[in-house]
Amino acid sequence: MSHQSDNHTVPYKSYLWILAILIVLTIISVGVTYIELGNLTVFTAILLASVKSTLVLIYFMHLKFDNKLLQYLVAAIFILLGLVLFITFLDYNYR
């Protein structure tokens, strides 16, 4: 069987570390809402969510150990999403 699934085994400990970081980031994202950040509130929330989702994609979703094609595809999809969001808001801002 040449097409076996990859047998790269991630140690339990790595997953637990990532989980701990994700929970800390969640608590931080709640904590910062008590600080008056003004215009930066939305930015901070999105930034923390982006960091968390990147951790989930790379470690939980195994992208770190996947082939290059998949890594590029996932990156491309997120760039596409970012562009669509950006262009939509550009449009709404200057209407």
């Binding site: 339990y12 989980l19 929970i23």
Partner: peptide
């Protein structure tokens, strides 16, 4: 936090 833990548990199931 519940969902984050559940993500970690299913990831550990693959290990």
């Amino acid at each position: 936090i519940i969902l984050l833990i559940s993500s970690a548990t299913i990831a550990m199931a693959t290990t």
